[in-house]
Design a protein around this nucleic acid. Structure first.
Lengths: 278, 278
DNA sequence: CTTGACATTATAGTTGCTATAAGGTTTATG
DNA sequence: CATAAACCTTATAGCAACTATAATGTCAAG
Protein backbone atom coordinates (compact mmCIF):
# COMPACT_ATOMS: atom_id res chain seq x y z
CA UNK A 1 0.00 0.00 0.00
CA UNK A 2 1.08 3.59 0.42
CA UNK A 3 4.07 3.55 2.72
CA UNK A 4 5.41 6.57 4.48
CA UNK A 5 8.98 7.81 4.63
CA UNK A 6 10.41 8.39 8.06
CA UNK A 7 9.74 12.12 7.71
CA UNK A 8 6.08 11.64 6.85
CA UNK A 9 5.60 9.12 9.65
CA UNK A 10 7.27 11.50 12.07
CA UNK A 11 5.04 14.37 11.00
CA UNK A 12 1.87 12.29 11.32
CA UNK A 13 2.78 11.35 14.85
CA UNK A 14 4.21 14.62 15.99
CA UNK A 15 7.65 13.26 16.79
CA UNK A 16 11.08 13.72 15.22
CA UNK A 17 12.75 11.47 12.68
CA UNK A 18 15.63 11.04 15.12
CA UNK A 19 13.25 9.59 17.65
CA UNK A 20 11.87 7.11 15.12
CA UNK A 21 15.43 6.05 14.25
CA UNK A 22 16.17 5.64 17.95
CA UNK A 23 13.09 3.46 18.43
CA UNK A 24 14.17 1.38 15.44
CA UNK A 25 17.64 0.92 16.86
CA UNK A 26 16.25 0.02 20.29
CA UNK A 27 13.83 -2.47 18.77
CA UNK A 28 10.75 -0.60 19.97
CA UNK A 29 9.34 -0.09 16.50
CA UNK A 30 10.92 -1.28 13.27
CA UNK A 31 9.72 0.19 9.95
CA UNK A 32 7.64 -2.40 8.10
CA UNK A 33 9.85 -2.07 5.00
CA UNK A 34 13.51 -1.28 4.59
CA UNK A 35 14.99 -0.64 1.13
CA UNK A 36 18.02 -2.90 1.08
CA UNK A 37 19.87 -0.70 -1.43
CA UNK A 38 19.35 2.74 0.04
CA UNK A 39 18.60 1.72 3.63
CA UNK A 40 15.59 4.02 3.56
CA UNK A 41 12.92 3.23 6.17
CA UNK A 42 9.28 2.96 5.13
CA UNK A 43 6.42 2.86 7.65
CA UNK A 44 2.81 1.78 7.46
CA UNK A 45 0.45 4.38 8.90
CA UNK A 46 -1.17 1.63 10.93
CA UNK A 47 2.08 1.28 12.87
CA UNK A 48 0.98 4.53 14.53
CA UNK A 49 -0.99 2.30 16.90
CA UNK A 50 2.28 1.05 18.31
CA UNK A 51 3.66 4.57 18.59
CA UNK A 52 0.49 5.60 20.42
CA UNK A 53 1.09 2.84 22.93
CA UNK A 54 4.72 3.84 23.37
CA UNK A 55 3.84 7.50 23.85
CA UNK A 56 1.10 6.56 26.25
CA UNK A 57 3.41 4.44 28.37
CA UNK A 58 5.95 7.25 28.28
CA UNK A 59 3.38 9.63 29.75
CA UNK A 60 2.97 7.10 32.53
CA UNK A 61 6.65 7.70 33.25
CA UNK A 62 7.83 4.28 32.07
CA UNK A 63 11.34 4.12 30.61
CA UNK A 64 11.89 3.05 27.02
CA UNK A 65 13.72 -0.03 28.27
CA UNK A 66 10.70 -1.07 30.32
CA UNK A 67 8.38 -0.29 27.42
CA UNK A 68 10.43 -2.56 25.21
CA UNK A 69 10.22 -5.28 27.83
CA UNK A 70 6.44 -4.90 27.96
CA UNK A 71 6.11 -4.96 24.16
CA UNK A 72 8.35 -8.03 24.01
CA UNK A 73 6.89 -10.03 26.88
CA UNK A 74 3.26 -9.47 25.90
CA UNK A 75 2.06 -10.41 29.35
CA UNK A 76 -0.92 -8.61 30.85
CA UNK A 77 0.19 -9.52 34.38
CA UNK A 78 3.49 -7.74 33.80
CA UNK A 79 1.65 -4.65 32.59
CA UNK A 80 -0.74 -4.66 35.51
CA UNK A 81 2.10 -5.00 38.01
CA UNK A 82 3.99 -2.21 36.30
CA UNK A 83 0.95 0.07 36.45
CA UNK A 84 0.54 -0.56 40.17
CA UNK A 85 4.21 0.13 40.81
CA UNK A 86 4.02 3.33 38.83
CA UNK A 87 0.93 4.39 40.76
CA UNK A 88 2.71 4.17 44.10
CA UNK A 89 5.76 5.93 42.65
CA UNK A 90 3.53 8.80 41.58
CA UNK A 91 2.00 9.05 45.03
CA UNK A 92 5.48 9.32 46.49
CA UNK A 93 6.43 11.94 43.93
CA UNK A 94 3.36 14.01 44.75
CA UNK A 95 4.16 13.74 48.43
CA UNK A 96 7.76 14.85 47.81
CA UNK A 97 6.63 17.78 45.70
CA UNK A 98 4.35 18.92 48.50
CA UNK A 99 7.24 18.73 50.96
CA UNK A 100 9.34 20.77 48.53
CA UNK A 101 6.56 23.33 48.25
CA UNK A 102 6.63 23.75 52.00
CA UNK A 103 10.41 24.17 51.92
CA UNK A 104 10.23 26.82 49.23
CA UNK A 105 7.54 28.76 51.07
CA UNK A 106 9.69 28.54 54.16
CA UNK A 107 12.74 29.94 52.39
CA UNK A 108 10.70 32.67 50.73
CA UNK A 109 9.18 33.68 54.04
CA UNK A 110 12.67 33.85 55.62
CA UNK A 111 13.82 36.15 52.87
CA UNK A 112 10.69 38.22 53.21
CA UNK A 113 11.23 38.57 56.95
CA UNK A 114 14.82 39.60 56.32
CA UNK A 115 13.78 42.37 53.98
CA UNK A 116 10.80 43.64 55.90
CA UNK A 117 12.23 43.57 59.42
CA UNK A 118 12.14 47.17 60.62
CA UNK A 119 14.97 47.13 63.16
CA UNK A 120 18.19 45.13 63.20
CA UNK A 121 20.71 44.94 66.03
CA UNK A 122 18.20 46.38 68.48
CA UNK A 123 16.11 44.75 71.21
CA UNK A 124 12.46 44.46 70.22
CA UNK A 125 9.53 43.14 72.19
CA UNK A 126 7.35 40.46 70.56
CA UNK A 127 4.51 38.18 71.54
CA UNK A 128 5.30 34.76 70.11
CA UNK A 129 3.06 31.70 69.85
CA UNK A 130 4.09 28.33 71.24
CA UNK A 131 6.29 26.46 68.74
CA UNK A 132 7.23 22.82 68.25
CA UNK A 133 10.81 21.66 67.77
CA UNK A 134 12.87 18.48 67.46
CA UNK A 135 16.03 18.86 69.52
CA UNK A 136 19.44 17.22 69.81
CA UNK A 137 20.88 17.57 73.31
CA UNK A 138 24.46 18.85 73.40
CA UNK A 139 26.61 20.60 75.96
CA UNK A 140 28.90 22.99 74.16
CA UNK A 141 30.09 26.53 74.36
CA UNK A 142 30.29 27.55 70.71
CA UNK A 143 31.57 30.99 71.59
CA UNK A 144 34.83 29.52 72.89
CA UNK A 145 34.99 26.31 70.86
CA UNK A 146 34.37 28.23 67.69
CA UNK A 147 32.31 28.19 64.59
CA UNK A 148 34.16 25.21 63.27
CA UNK A 149 32.95 23.12 66.16
CA UNK A 150 29.38 24.26 65.56
CA UNK A 151 29.68 22.98 62.00
CA UNK A 152 30.81 19.59 63.28
CA UNK A 153 27.71 19.35 65.48
CA UNK A 154 25.53 20.40 62.55
CA UNK A 155 27.06 17.67 60.38
CA UNK A 156 25.91 15.10 62.93
CA UNK A 157 22.40 16.50 63.07
CA UNK A 158 22.26 16.48 59.30
CA UNK A 159 23.40 12.87 59.06
CA UNK A 160 20.74 11.92 61.56
CA UNK A 161 18.02 13.69 59.58
CA UNK A 162 19.13 11.99 56.38
CA UNK A 163 19.20 8.59 58.04
CA UNK A 164 15.61 9.20 59.18
CA UNK A 165 14.65 10.24 55.66
CA UNK A 166 13.69 13.74 56.72
CA UNK A 167 14.22 16.14 53.80
CA UNK A 168 17.38 18.24 54.16
CA UNK A 169 15.25 21.33 53.74
CA UNK A 170 14.31 21.03 57.42
CA UNK A 171 17.95 21.47 58.21
CA UNK A 172 17.95 24.91 56.68
CA UNK A 173 16.46 26.73 59.66
CA UNK A 174 18.36 25.34 62.56
CA UNK A 175 18.43 26.84 66.03
CA UNK A 176 20.11 26.46 69.40
CA UNK A 177 18.98 27.06 72.97
CA UNK A 178 20.72 27.92 76.21
CA UNK A 179 19.16 26.94 79.48
CA UNK A 180 17.43 29.79 81.32
CA UNK A 181 19.71 29.54 84.38
CA UNK A 182 22.88 29.35 82.30
CA UNK A 183 21.84 32.36 80.29
CA UNK A 184 21.01 34.37 83.43
CA UNK A 185 24.49 33.52 84.79
CA UNK A 186 26.10 34.44 81.44
CA UNK A 187 27.23 30.85 81.11
CA UNK A 188 26.57 30.58 77.38
CA UNK A 189 26.55 26.82 77.12
CA UNK A 190 24.19 25.59 74.42
CA UNK A 191 22.13 22.69 75.69
CA UNK A 192 20.49 21.70 72.42
CA UNK A 193 20.41 22.17 68.66
CA UNK A 194 16.96 21.98 67.10
CA UNK A 195 14.97 22.05 63.87
CA UNK A 196 11.38 23.18 63.61
CA UNK A 197 8.73 20.49 63.77
CA UNK A 198 5.64 20.26 61.61
CA UNK A 199 2.93 17.71 60.96
CA UNK A 200 5.24 15.78 58.65
CA UNK A 201 8.24 15.46 60.97
CA UNK A 202 6.11 15.03 64.09
CA UNK A 203 5.49 11.43 63.12
CA UNK A 204 9.20 10.70 62.81
CA UNK A 205 10.89 12.47 65.74
CA UNK A 206 9.56 13.30 69.20
CA UNK A 207 8.65 16.97 69.48
CA UNK A 208 9.14 19.45 72.31
CA UNK A 209 7.48 22.80 72.87
CA UNK A 210 8.95 26.26 73.12
CA UNK A 211 6.27 28.06 75.10
CA UNK A 212 4.51 31.13 73.73
CA UNK A 213 4.44 34.48 75.50
CA UNK A 214 6.32 37.75 75.73
CA UNK A 215 9.82 37.71 74.26
CA UNK A 216 12.70 40.12 73.96
CA UNK A 217 14.32 39.62 70.55
CA UNK A 218 17.20 40.89 68.44
CA UNK A 219 17.47 40.41 64.67
CA UNK A 220 21.00 40.53 63.26
CA UNK A 221 23.19 39.18 60.52
CA UNK A 222 26.36 37.55 61.77
CA UNK A 223 26.99 34.71 64.15
CA UNK A 224 30.08 36.47 65.45
CA UNK A 225 27.97 39.23 66.92
CA UNK A 226 25.79 36.87 68.95
CA UNK A 227 27.65 37.55 72.24
CA UNK A 228 27.30 41.27 71.80
CA UNK A 229 23.55 41.01 71.20
CA UNK A 230 23.02 38.64 74.10
CA UNK A 231 24.43 41.36 76.34
CA UNK A 232 21.87 43.77 74.88
CA UNK A 233 19.11 41.43 76.05
CA UNK A 234 20.59 41.43 79.57
CA UNK A 235 20.91 45.20 79.60
CA UNK A 236 17.45 45.81 78.23
CA UNK A 237 15.76 43.41 80.67
CA UNK A 238 17.61 44.92 83.60
CA UNK A 239 16.77 48.44 82.43
CA UNK A 240 12.99 47.92 82.19
CA UNK A 241 12.69 45.50 85.08
CA UNK A 242 12.03 42.22 83.25
CA UNK A 243 13.24 38.80 84.33
CA UNK A 244 13.92 35.80 82.10
CA UNK A 245 11.33 33.05 82.35
CA UNK A 246 12.36 30.69 79.56
CA UNK A 247 15.34 29.28 77.69
CA UNK A 248 17.32 31.52 75.38
CA UNK A 249 16.64 30.67 71.73
CA UNK A 250 18.89 31.44 68.77
CA UNK A 251 17.05 30.89 65.49
CA UNK A 252 18.44 31.04 61.96
CA UNK A 253 15.81 32.69 59.80
CA UNK A 254 17.66 32.69 56.51
CA UNK A 255 21.02 31.41 55.30
CA UNK A 256 23.27 33.50 53.11
CA UNK A 257 26.32 31.55 52.03
CA UNK A 258 25.59 33.47 48.87
CA UNK A 259 27.33 36.44 50.35
CA UNK A 260 30.25 34.65 51.91
CA UNK A 261 31.27 31.25 50.68
CA UNK A 262 33.92 30.62 53.32
CA UNK A 263 31.62 30.12 56.27
CA UNK A 264 28.04 30.09 57.49
CA UNK A 265 26.35 33.46 57.37
CA UNK A 266 22.82 33.62 58.64
CA UNK A 267 20.12 36.13 59.35
CA UNK A 268 19.51 35.39 62.99
CA UNK A 269 16.86 36.08 65.57
CA UNK A 270 17.71 35.62 69.23
CA UNK A 271 14.91 35.62 71.73
CA UNK A 272 14.17 35.01 75.39
CA UNK A 273 10.87 34.85 77.26
CA UNK A 274 10.39 37.55 79.87
CA UNK A 275 7.96 38.70 82.55
CA UNK A 276 7.77 41.90 84.55
CA UNK A 277 9.47 41.73 87.92
CA UNK A 278 6.83 41.67 90.64
CA UNK B 1 43.33 25.47 61.06
CA UNK B 2 42.56 21.82 60.50
CA UNK B 3 41.72 21.45 56.86
CA UNK B 4 39.97 18.46 55.43
CA UNK B 5 40.94 16.40 52.41
CA UNK B 6 38.31 15.98 49.76
CA UNK B 7 37.46 12.54 51.13
CA UNK B 8 36.92 13.80 54.67
CA UNK B 9 34.85 16.74 53.47
CA UNK B 10 32.77 14.39 51.33
CA UNK B 11 32.15 12.06 54.24
CA UNK B 12 31.13 14.90 56.57
CA UNK B 13 28.57 16.08 54.08
CA UNK B 14 27.34 12.73 52.88
CA UNK B 15 28.31 13.29 49.26
CA UNK B 16 30.94 11.75 47.00
CA UNK B 17 34.39 13.10 46.24
CA UNK B 18 33.43 13.13 42.57
CA UNK B 19 30.59 15.48 43.31
CA UNK B 20 32.90 17.85 45.19
CA UNK B 21 35.32 17.83 42.25
CA UNK B 22 32.42 18.55 39.92
CA UNK B 23 31.31 21.49 42.05
CA UNK B 24 34.90 22.77 42.03
CA UNK B 25 35.10 22.50 38.25
CA UNK B 26 31.72 24.22 37.84
CA UNK B 27 32.74 26.99 40.20
CA UNK B 28 30.01 26.18 42.72
CA UNK B 29 32.41 25.55 45.58
CA UNK B 30 36.18 25.81 45.39
CA UNK B 31 38.31 24.24 48.13
CA UNK B 32 39.77 26.97 50.34
CA UNK B 33 43.29 25.65 49.79
CA UNK B 34 44.92 23.91 46.87
CA UNK B 35 48.39 22.40 47.16
CA UNK B 36 50.17 23.74 44.10
CA UNK B 37 52.62 20.79 43.94
CA UNK B 38 50.27 17.85 44.38
CA UNK B 39 47.02 19.59 43.29
CA UNK B 40 45.36 18.15 46.39
CA UNK B 41 42.20 19.96 47.46
CA UNK B 42 41.76 21.01 51.11
CA UNK B 43 38.44 22.20 52.51
CA UNK B 44 37.44 24.12 55.61
CA UNK B 45 34.60 22.44 57.51
CA UNK B 46 32.81 25.78 57.58
CA UNK B 47 32.46 25.57 53.81
CA UNK B 48 29.77 22.99 54.60
CA UNK B 49 27.42 25.96 54.91
CA UNK B 50 27.76 26.54 51.20
CA UNK B 51 27.22 22.86 50.46
CA UNK B 52 24.09 22.94 52.61
CA UNK B 53 22.78 25.80 50.53
CA UNK B 54 23.59 23.98 47.29
CA UNK B 55 21.92 20.78 48.48
CA UNK B 56 18.94 22.73 49.68
CA UNK B 57 18.50 24.48 46.36
CA UNK B 58 18.88 21.12 44.64
CA UNK B 59 15.98 19.73 46.65
CA UNK B 60 13.98 22.68 45.35
CA UNK B 61 14.65 21.25 41.91
CA UNK B 62 16.98 24.04 40.79
CA UNK B 63 19.67 23.08 38.30
CA UNK B 64 23.34 23.41 39.22
CA UNK B 65 23.72 26.06 36.54
CA UNK B 66 20.98 28.16 38.11
CA UNK B 67 22.43 27.57 41.57
CA UNK B 68 25.75 28.89 40.35
CA UNK B 69 24.01 31.95 38.94
CA UNK B 70 22.31 32.54 42.27
CA UNK B 71 25.56 32.14 44.22
CA UNK B 72 27.32 34.47 41.80
CA UNK B 73 24.69 37.17 41.48
CA UNK B 74 24.03 37.46 45.21
CA UNK B 75 20.74 39.17 44.61
CA UNK B 76 17.78 38.42 46.87
CA UNK B 77 15.33 39.54 44.19
CA UNK B 78 16.71 36.92 41.82
CA UNK B 79 16.31 34.26 44.49
CA UNK B 80 12.77 35.32 45.32
CA UNK B 81 11.78 35.31 41.66
CA UNK B 82 13.34 31.88 41.21
CA UNK B 83 11.46 30.52 44.20
CA UNK B 84 8.16 31.79 42.82
CA UNK B 85 8.86 30.29 39.41
CA UNK B 86 9.75 26.98 40.99
CA UNK B 87 6.56 27.06 43.05
CA UNK B 88 4.37 27.35 39.98
CA UNK B 89 6.40 24.65 38.20
CA UNK B 90 5.75 22.34 41.12
CA UNK B 91 2.03 23.04 41.01
CA UNK B 92 2.01 22.13 37.35
CA UNK B 93 3.99 18.96 38.06
CA UNK B 94 1.54 17.92 40.77
CA UNK B 95 -1.33 18.56 38.40
CA UNK B 96 0.32 16.51 35.67
CA UNK B 97 0.99 13.66 38.06
CA UNK B 98 -2.65 13.61 39.05
CA UNK B 99 -3.66 13.47 35.39
CA UNK B 100 -1.21 10.61 34.91
CA UNK B 101 -2.71 8.81 37.89
CA UNK B 102 -6.11 9.01 36.23
CA UNK B 103 -4.66 7.67 33.00
CA UNK B 104 -3.03 4.73 34.76
CA UNK B 105 -6.21 3.86 36.63
CA UNK B 106 -8.05 4.03 33.32
CA UNK B 107 -5.62 1.65 31.60
CA UNK B 108 -5.66 -0.72 34.56
CA UNK B 109 -9.45 -0.78 34.59
CA UNK B 110 -9.51 -1.50 30.84
CA UNK B 111 -7.20 -4.46 31.37
CA UNK B 112 -9.28 -5.60 34.29
CA UNK B 113 -12.45 -5.45 32.22
CA UNK B 114 -10.74 -7.43 29.49
CA UNK B 115 -9.80 -10.19 31.88
CA UNK B 116 -13.00 -10.37 33.85
CA UNK B 117 -15.52 -10.07 31.03
CA UNK B 118 -17.58 -13.27 31.10
CA UNK B 119 -18.62 -13.53 27.46
CA UNK B 120 -16.88 -12.42 24.28
CA UNK B 121 -18.32 -12.37 20.78
CA UNK B 122 -21.85 -12.71 22.14
CA UNK B 123 -24.67 -10.22 22.53
CA UNK B 124 -25.19 -9.20 26.15
CA UNK B 125 -27.73 -6.89 27.69
CA UNK B 126 -26.45 -4.06 29.91
CA UNK B 127 -27.87 -1.03 31.65
CA UNK B 128 -25.42 1.79 31.04
CA UNK B 129 -25.29 5.23 32.69
CA UNK B 130 -25.25 8.45 30.66
CA UNK B 131 -21.69 9.28 29.56
CA UNK B 132 -19.96 12.44 28.39
CA UNK B 133 -17.81 12.58 25.26
CA UNK B 134 -15.91 15.05 23.09
CA UNK B 135 -16.56 14.26 19.46
CA UNK B 136 -15.06 15.04 16.06
CA UNK B 137 -17.66 14.93 13.29
CA UNK B 138 -16.64 12.82 10.28
CA UNK B 139 -18.48 11.05 7.52
CA UNK B 140 -16.63 7.90 6.64
CA UNK B 141 -17.24 4.26 6.05
CA UNK B 142 -14.18 2.64 7.61
CA UNK B 143 -15.32 -0.82 6.61
CA UNK B 144 -14.81 0.01 2.93
CA UNK B 145 -12.15 2.72 3.20
CA UNK B 146 -10.06 0.53 5.48
CA UNK B 147 -8.15 0.55 8.66
CA UNK B 148 -5.50 2.75 7.14
CA UNK B 149 -8.02 5.50 6.62
CA UNK B 150 -9.18 5.19 10.22
CA UNK B 151 -5.59 5.78 11.33
CA UNK B 152 -5.41 8.95 9.27
CA UNK B 153 -8.51 10.28 11.02
CA UNK B 154 -7.05 9.33 14.39
CA UNK B 155 -3.82 11.23 13.58
CA UNK B 156 -5.89 14.37 13.09
CA UNK B 157 -7.75 13.90 16.35
CA UNK B 158 -4.48 13.33 18.12
CA UNK B 159 -2.89 16.46 16.69
CA UNK B 160 -5.91 18.43 17.79
CA UNK B 161 -5.69 17.07 21.35
CA UNK B 162 -1.99 17.89 21.52
CA UNK B 163 -2.56 21.40 20.22
CA UNK B 164 -5.15 21.88 22.96
CA UNK B 165 -2.69 20.53 25.54
CA UNK B 166 -4.90 17.60 26.43
CA UNK B 167 -2.72 14.68 27.61
CA UNK B 168 -2.32 11.97 24.96
CA UNK B 169 -3.58 9.47 27.49
CA UNK B 170 -7.13 10.59 26.66
CA UNK B 171 -6.49 9.42 23.16
CA UNK B 172 -6.06 5.88 24.33
CA UNK B 173 -9.73 4.99 24.61
CA UNK B 174 -11.16 6.33 21.44
CA UNK B 175 -14.58 5.48 20.08
CA UNK B 176 -16.79 5.98 17.04
CA UNK B 177 -20.53 6.27 16.56
CA UNK B 178 -22.93 5.55 13.71
CA UNK B 179 -26.19 7.40 13.49
CA UNK B 180 -29.23 5.41 14.63
CA UNK B 181 -30.97 5.59 11.22
CA UNK B 182 -27.83 4.66 9.30
CA UNK B 183 -27.23 1.69 11.58
CA UNK B 184 -30.81 0.52 11.24
CA UNK B 185 -30.44 0.70 7.43
CA UNK B 186 -27.09 -1.14 7.62
CA UNK B 187 -25.41 1.94 6.22
CA UNK B 188 -22.32 1.75 8.41
CA UNK B 189 -21.14 5.31 7.98
CA UNK B 190 -19.38 6.63 11.08
CA UNK B 191 -20.57 10.11 11.90
CA UNK B 192 -18.08 10.92 14.65
CA UNK B 193 -14.93 9.88 16.46
CA UNK B 194 -14.88 10.65 20.17
CA UNK B 195 -12.83 10.54 23.35
CA UNK B 196 -14.31 10.28 26.83
CA UNK B 197 -14.80 13.56 28.70
CA UNK B 198 -14.05 14.18 32.34
CA UNK B 199 -13.88 17.17 34.65
CA UNK B 200 -10.44 18.05 33.32
CA UNK B 201 -11.24 18.01 29.59
CA UNK B 202 -14.73 19.47 30.05
CA UNK B 203 -13.20 22.91 30.47
CA UNK B 204 -11.25 22.63 27.22
CA UNK B 205 -13.61 21.01 24.71
CA UNK B 206 -17.43 21.12 24.45
CA UNK B 207 -18.98 17.88 25.71
CA UNK B 208 -21.93 15.87 24.39
CA UNK B 209 -23.92 13.16 26.12
CA UNK B 210 -24.43 9.54 25.22
CA UNK B 211 -27.73 8.79 26.99
CA UNK B 212 -27.98 6.07 29.61
CA UNK B 213 -30.42 3.20 29.40
CA UNK B 214 -30.74 -0.36 28.13
CA UNK B 215 -28.05 -1.43 25.68
CA UNK B 216 -27.24 -4.48 23.64
CA UNK B 217 -23.46 -4.97 23.64
CA UNK B 218 -20.79 -7.25 22.21
CA UNK B 219 -17.24 -7.48 23.55
CA UNK B 220 -14.62 -8.70 21.09
CA UNK B 221 -11.00 -8.41 20.15
CA UNK B 222 -10.43 -7.44 16.56
CA UNK B 223 -11.56 -4.49 14.49
CA UNK B 224 -11.92 -6.73 11.47
CA UNK B 225 -14.76 -8.58 13.12
CA UNK B 226 -16.82 -5.48 13.77
CA UNK B 227 -19.14 -6.03 10.78
CA UNK B 228 -19.88 -9.56 11.85
CA UNK B 229 -20.75 -8.47 15.40
CA UNK B 230 -22.94 -5.61 14.21
CA UNK B 231 -25.02 -8.20 12.41
CA UNK B 232 -25.38 -10.09 15.67
CA UNK B 233 -26.92 -6.98 17.23
CA UNK B 234 -29.41 -6.77 14.36
CA UNK B 235 -30.28 -10.44 14.64
CA UNK B 236 -30.61 -10.39 18.42
CA UNK B 237 -32.79 -7.27 18.44
CA UNK B 238 -35.05 -8.68 15.75
CA UNK B 239 -35.24 -12.03 17.55
CA UNK B 240 -36.40 -10.67 20.89
CA UNK B 241 -38.46 -7.79 19.52
CA UNK B 242 -36.25 -4.80 20.44
CA UNK B 243 -35.86 -1.66 18.37
CA UNK B 244 -32.85 0.66 18.29
CA UNK B 245 -33.37 3.98 20.05
CA UNK B 246 -29.90 5.54 20.03
CA UNK B 247 -26.71 5.83 18.01
CA UNK B 248 -24.46 2.81 17.61
CA UNK B 249 -21.29 3.19 19.71
CA UNK B 250 -17.99 1.41 19.15
CA UNK B 251 -15.69 1.85 22.16
CA UNK B 252 -12.08 0.79 22.51
CA UNK B 253 -11.63 -0.52 26.04
CA UNK B 254 -8.01 -1.52 25.85
CA UNK B 255 -5.28 -1.32 23.21
CA UNK B 256 -3.00 -4.22 22.48
CA UNK B 257 -0.36 -3.26 19.99
CA UNK B 258 1.69 -5.45 22.29
CA UNK B 259 0.28 -8.47 20.54
CA UNK B 260 0.53 -7.22 17.02
CA UNK B 261 2.90 -4.44 16.13
CA UNK B 262 1.78 -4.02 12.54
CA UNK B 263 -1.61 -2.49 13.22
CA UNK B 264 -4.08 -1.41 15.84
CA UNK B 265 -5.50 -4.23 17.89
CA UNK B 266 -8.08 -3.33 20.48
CA UNK B 267 -10.40 -4.93 22.94
CA UNK B 268 -13.66 -3.47 21.74
CA UNK B 269 -17.18 -3.06 23.06
CA UNK B 270 -19.92 -2.21 20.61
CA UNK B 271 -23.25 -1.11 21.98
CA UNK B 272 -26.61 0.27 20.93
CA UNK B 273 -29.54 1.55 22.99
CA UNK B 274 -32.73 -0.50 22.66
CA UNK B 275 -36.35 -0.55 23.79
CA UNK B 276 -39.01 -3.24 23.57
CA UNK B 277 -41.27 -2.90 20.54
CA UNK B 278 -44.70 -1.76 21.63
C1' DC C 1 20.26 17.71 -15.16
C1' DT C 2 20.34 20.44 -11.57
C1' DT C 3 18.26 21.93 -7.31
C1' DG C 4 16.12 21.38 -3.00
C1' DA C 5 14.13 18.48 0.08
C1' DC C 6 14.74 14.52 2.08
C1' DA C 7 17.25 10.16 3.61
C1' DT C 8 21.45 7.71 5.68
C1' DT C 9 25.16 7.02 9.47
C1' DA C 10 28.05 8.70 13.03
C1' DT C 11 29.22 11.70 16.61
C1' DA C 12 28.67 15.04 20.32
C1' DG C 13 25.82 17.62 23.55
C1' DT C 14 22.27 17.91 27.34
C1' DT C 15 22.01 16.93 33.36
C1' DG C 16 24.07 15.53 37.60
C1' DC C 17 26.16 12.62 38.73
C1' DT C 18 28.73 7.47 39.08
C1' DA C 19 32.26 4.28 37.64
C1' DT C 20 36.59 3.20 35.96
C1' DA C 21 41.45 3.58 34.54
C1' DA C 22 46.10 4.97 35.08
C1' DG C 23 48.91 7.20 37.76
C1' DG C 24 50.93 10.09 41.98
C1' DT C 25 50.91 11.00 47.45
C1' DT C 26 50.31 10.08 52.18
C1' DT C 27 50.14 7.29 56.11
C1' DA C 28 50.40 3.17 58.78
C1' DT C 29 52.46 -1.01 59.69
C1' DG C 30 56.07 -4.66 59.79
C1' DC D 1 63.02 1.89 55.73
C1' DA D 2 60.22 -0.64 52.56
C1' DT D 3 55.94 -1.64 51.32
C1' DA D 4 51.13 -1.77 51.16
C1' DA D 5 46.80 0.32 51.93
C1' DA D 6 44.36 4.19 51.54
C1' DC D 7 44.05 8.17 49.66
C1' DC D 8 44.57 11.87 45.98
C1' DT D 9 44.92 13.49 40.87
C1' DT D 10 43.06 13.82 35.84
C1' DA D 11 40.60 11.92 32.07
C1' DT D 12 37.14 9.27 30.07
C1' DA D 13 32.74 6.80 29.52
C1' DG D 14 28.14 5.70 31.01
C1' DC D 15 23.20 6.73 32.29
C1' DA D 16 18.10 8.43 29.58
C1' DA D 17 15.84 10.17 25.96
C1' DC D 18 16.47 12.62 23.15
C1' DT D 19 18.47 17.01 20.03
C1' DA D 20 21.86 18.94 16.98
C1' DT D 21 25.35 18.66 13.71
C1' DA D 22 28.31 16.93 9.96
C1' DA D 23 29.30 14.46 5.91
C1' DT D 24 27.23 11.97 2.52
C1' DG D 25 23.63 9.59 -0.43
C1' DT D 26 18.66 9.53 -2.79
C1' DC D 27 14.46 11.26 -4.71
C1' DA D 28 11.10 14.25 -7.17
C1' DA D 29 10.14 18.40 -9.62
C1' DG D 30 11.12 21.99 -12.87
Amino acid sequence: MNNLTIGQMAKCNGISTQTLRLYDKMGLLKPCIRNSETDYRYYDLRQSACLDMIQYMKTLGISLKEIKRILDEQDIDVITAMLQKRLSEIDRQIHDLNVTKGAIRNMASGLHTYRSIPVQNTVVWETLPARLIHSYPICEDFSTKGNNYFEAVLREVRSDLISRKIPVSYFCNVGTTIHLDDFARRNYMSNRVFIWADKYTAGILPAETIPGGSYLCVYFENYRRETEHREKLHAFAAGVGYRFVGDFVCESISEFPIFQKAERNSFIKIQIAVEKNT
